[in-house]
């Protein structure tokens, strides 16, 4: 393998951002309202220059009111989920770790649901509650996954699966107490849905994303060492417990963030980091940014399909990620085995 240099990280990330950009343009083009690529370019160009009056009001509404905010939300959620997946895989030294497998997403969903029931009007309460739910579940799974003081891979996964099903049952139970209208909203949300943007301003959510991804990124070379073995890393001067704490908090925060705005979108946290590993190698200094951008690409792509496959009705994006994610994963796994 070629040595990893900052230059290489930069170029790979630039290429990925380019792919994301193409995906965004494709996604802007697709939808129930027909707009040609030329009109989109015209709308974006005039929009960027602040010339509202030159844009037909329909184009303005569809591009700036519906599609771009949704894409922005998708990028946020995809980046958060993929990065937290990569973080959990390093933290638990388990390639199958992912916010959904570990029940962390269910914990976040339960927290978000409780805040929706008891404090629906407080801005940011959903995000805070989702973070608390995610962090508490991560802690519980981490604790339950130990065997004789050591983190055991199989026990950990079992603990995660059991937590997930327990928390889902709790969500179902709470769901029956909701009125019909909220129940429908909740059912859609549990499947993962980007069609209803959050009441909170995207600014703050992006800020949280950047801080959390950034803090995981600062530990990336330490994570590389931890992956070879905690003892070895400790001998090389890595403050293992500090690194783990940072990743633990940041990954929980990212899961809570994603779940609070878009519900449970599965597979992204598991598959995107693996795909990135298969393509670019296992170095976390490249894997973290590559996963973040890759997750954004995956969600924007999946959501474009969700909006258009059975138009004008929309599918939950979670269904699309599962449908598209599983075959891709199997293909890549078989290819790498060969």
């Amino acid at each position: 393998m070629r040595p990893l240099t900052p230059k290489r990280v930069f170029w790979i990330c630039s290429v990925l951002v380019g792919v994301l950009f193409v995906m965004v343009v494709v996604s802007l083009r697709m939808g129930a309202y027909p707009i040609s690529v030329r009109d989109i370019v015209m709308t974006l160009f005039n929009g960027a220059l602040g010339r509202r009056d030159r844009i037909p009001s329909d184009f303005w509404l569809v591009v700036f009111g519906l599609r771009l905010p949704r894409i922005a939300l998708g990028i946020l959620v995809g980046a958060a989920l993929a990065t937290s997946g990569a973080g959990f895989q390093a933290l638990l030294r388990n390639p199958l770790a992912d916010p959904y497998v570990l029940g962390v997403a269910s914990g976040a969903a339960l927290g978000a649901m409780l805040s929706l029931m008891f404090a629906p009007q407080v801005p940011g309460a959903i995000q805070a509650a989702a973070f608390v739910g995610a962090a508490a579940t991560t802690g519980a799974v981490y604790f339950l996954g130990r065997r004789g003081g050591q983190l055991d891979s199989a026990t950990l996964l079992l603990a995660g699966i059991i937590s997930a099903s327990f928390l889902s049952a709790a969500i179902m139970f709470l769901g029956t107490t909701l009125s019909g209208r909220d129940q429908r909203g909740m059912a859609f949300w549990i499947m993962g849905d980007l069609s209803s943007p959050p009441s909170l301003n995207l600014h703050w959510l992006y800020l949280v994303l950047i801080v959390a991804v950034g803090s995981i990124y600062t530990t990336s070379s330490d994570l590389n060492l931890i992956l070879t073995g905690e003892q070895e890393a400790r001998h090389l001067g890595v403050n293992v417990s500090r690194v783990k704490l940072v990743v633990y908090i940041a990954a929980s925060l990212l899961t809570g963030l994603a779940v609070s705005v878009a519900g449970a979108i599965g597979y992204v946290g598991l598959i995107v980091p693996h795909v990135m590993r298969m393509i670019f190698g296992t170095d976390y200094r490249l894997l973290i940014p590559a996963s973040a951008i890759g997750g954004a690409i995956a969600i924007v792509f999946a959501d474009t399909l969700a909006r258009t496959v059975v138009a004008p009705t929309e599918l939950p994006v979670g269904a699309m990620t599962a449908l598209a994610g599983a075959p891709v994963f199997i293909y890549l796994m078989r290819r790498s085995v060969r």
């Binding site: 939808g31 129930a32 309202y33 329909d58 509404l61 569809v62 009111g65 519906l66 599609r67 859609f188 069609s195 909006r307 138009a311 004008p312 009705t313 929309e314 599918l315 939950p316």
Partner: peptide, 8 residues
């Protein structure tokens, strides 16, 4: 799950 775009 209606399409908001179609409504617009």
């Amino acid at each position: 799950s209606p399409s908001l775009e179609a409504i617009v």
